[in-house]
């Protein structure tokens, strides 16, 4: 199924280039902070930009028309890299990773290489592939991290496409029936909530409590953890911000919410992101922007091991997203 959220034809695009934002690097320097690498413990694998949805908040511009998808040779090179590095967590993302024909092969090969394997899912793509994927996901104890932006149908569908809210609830129920999100099953089901517009996310702990209560009461849905992330002003979300006249105020909001305490725990310090074509980045957002890890174009097959601690991380204005409020994990 292909689902499309529509960008409403609001105000004409504003002059993005006229917006002056204090460079992230300068803000770090002002607070006497440096953003450098710690030992890497997570490998994030982006299998490609192909997706059955065209969500308005997508920082990658993923969608059904995208052709970028990891091939089997690159899959093997990524597996070999994971073998060289001994990561604690391997985080598989996309696009919709379920649409990559090599997903099961990848999971089978990397499962013995890291104690924790995560699959990010938009749920609707998983539904379409459920028969093929669910047993291998269960047997390899793959953690499912599912997008679930809001408890409200209209908010969800306006961000992710018509019918997605109802479909997500149905898939969550199905996953619960198979043991995911159930205490004692060992099958972890986590949710990710993104704001459905140009505003910051609510407090994660309080939102998780509320989601547990309402999802259980209204639909009998159970899950383990909820992560509340801000939207990153890149890709389709950046286009939407500009078209809707929200770009300037959103960027100002991110800048004014800069939290120096968040910098120590930013995910880019401990993560290596590998794209569908095997090149390395400091995070999925730098991948979206085409900014290579440490500013150098290095292929995963050429990387001898994890990046060296204290290596500087490349920053840009989108980094304010992760440093706003409580940070981004």
């Amino acid at each position: 199924m292909t689902v499309q959220a529509t960008i409403p034809n609001l105000k004409p695009p504003s002059e993005e280039k006229t917006l002056e934002i204090v460079p992230f690097k300068s803000t770090l320097a002002k607070h006497d902070l440096k953003l450098v690498r710690n030992p890497a413990h997570t490998l994030q694998i982006n299998l490609g930009f192909l997706c059955n949805q065209t969500c308005l908040h997508c920082h990658l511009n993923a969608g059904p028309a995208r052709k970028e998808n990891m091939g089997s040779d690159t899959v093997n090179e990524v597996v070999a890299y994971a073998q060289r590095c001994h990561f604690d967590t391997i985080d598989i993302t996309g696009g919709a990773p379920e649409l990559n024909p090599h997903l099961l092969d990848l999971i089978k090969k990397i499962s013995p290489l890291a104690p924790r394997i995560m699959l990010r899912s938009n749920l609707s793509a998983l539904k379409d592939q459920m028969n093929r994927l669910i047993e291998p996901l269960k047997s390899h104890r793959v953690v499912i991290v599912a997008s679930f932006p809001s408890l409200n149908l209209n908010q969800t569908d306006s961000q992710r496409g018509e019918g997605i809210f109802a479909e997500s609830i149905a898939v969550l129920k199905e996953l619960n029936a198979m043991g995911y999100g159930r205490n004692g099953s060992g099958l972890e089901l986590n949710l990710v909530s993104n704001p459905t517009g140009a505003f910051l996310p609510p407090n994660q702990e309080k939102t998780e409590k509320r989601y547990h209560q309402i999802l259980d009461q209204k639909w009998g849905v159970r899950f383990n953890r909820l992560f509340s992330f801000a939207n990153v002003p890149l890709g389709r979300f950046r286009q939407w911000l500009i078209k809707s006249g929200n770009f300037e105020s959103y960027m100002q909001k991110l800048v004014s919410n800069f939290n120096p305490c968040s910098v120590e725990g930013l995910m880019c310090r401990t993560l290596v992101s590998v794209s569908w074509d095997g090149y390395l980045y400091d995070c999925d957002f730098n991948l979206a922007r085409g900014v290579y890890m440490s500013g150098k174009k290095i292929h995963v097959s050429e990387m001898p091991g994890p990046p060296e601690p204290d290596t500087p991380i490349v920053t840009a204005d989108h980094c304010y997203t992760c440093a706003a409020g409580l940070g981004f994990t």
Binding site: S150, L151, N152, N154, Q155, P195, G197, F199, L200, P201, P202, N203, K206, T207, R210
Partner: peptide, 13 residues
């Protein structure tokens, strides 16, 4: 309006 959205309320509420 902004505070409600950022505290996790939705338009229906």
């Amino acid at each position: 309006t902004q505070a409600c959205l950022e505290k996790g309320s939705n338009l229906a509420e």
